[in-house]
């Protein structure tokens, strides 16, 4: 059923986009994750610029579909969702509030990313200490660099005996 196109300003589009959550981490929106980068409106055409998180992340397609759906149900017919690779997504774009939400959800949030200079040497040192999101203990152990999704690693807490996931710094 064709609806009359509704006109929105940029802020309103950003507002609509904040409804789109990451399907694998439903507590965070694509704004909090830093996936939605830019909104432009030209001659009533809405263009949303997004940047993929991990190259092989299967959630990206779902996120794109969800953005299209949100725009469409709000009466926007002329739009485009573009992927932009010129900026590289990093967990540093995640707000403190988003990190707190992750922790409350049971995922140890990412810290600050390291500089690249010393990567080869860092291979030889042991992995960083990640505090347990449940009991804040630092008596934790890395089980695997890869978890249930590309963005997470698996850890184990020796104090509360709970396995937990860590959102990797990238």
């Amino acid at each position: 059923m064709p609806k009359t196109p509704v006109k929105y300003n940029k802020d309103e589009i950003w507002n609509l986009l904040s409804e789109v959550k990451d399907p694998e981490i439903p507590v965070l929106s694509i704004l909090e994750l830093g996936i939605a980068r830019e909104v432009t409106i030209e001659n009533d055409k809405v263009v949303v610029q997004i940047t993929p998180t991990y190259s092989g992340c299967p959630a990206m397609n779902a996120i794109e579909n969800e953005i299209e759906k949100v725009l469409r149900v709000n009466g926007i017919q002329d739009f485009e969702v573009n992927k932009d690779f010129s900026e590289t997504w990093t967990t540093d774009w995640m707000t403190d509030k988003a990190k707190q939400k992750l922790k409350e959800y049971g995922i140890a949030p990412p810290g600050k990313t390291d500089t690249d200079d010393d990567f080869l040497n860092s291979l030889k040192s042991s992995s960083k200490i990640i505090p347990c999101p449940y009991c804040d203990s630092t008596n934790t152990e890395l089980q695997s660099e890869f978890g249930s999704t590309a963005c997470k690693a698996q850890y184990y807490c020796h104090d509360c005996d709970e396995p937990f996931e860590h959102f990797k710094c990238i």
Partner: peptide, 8 residues
């Protein structure tokens, strides 16, 4: 996961 990265 690594396989997915490469295919990505």
């Amino acid at each position: 996961n690594i396989s997915l990265d490469y295919i990505g």
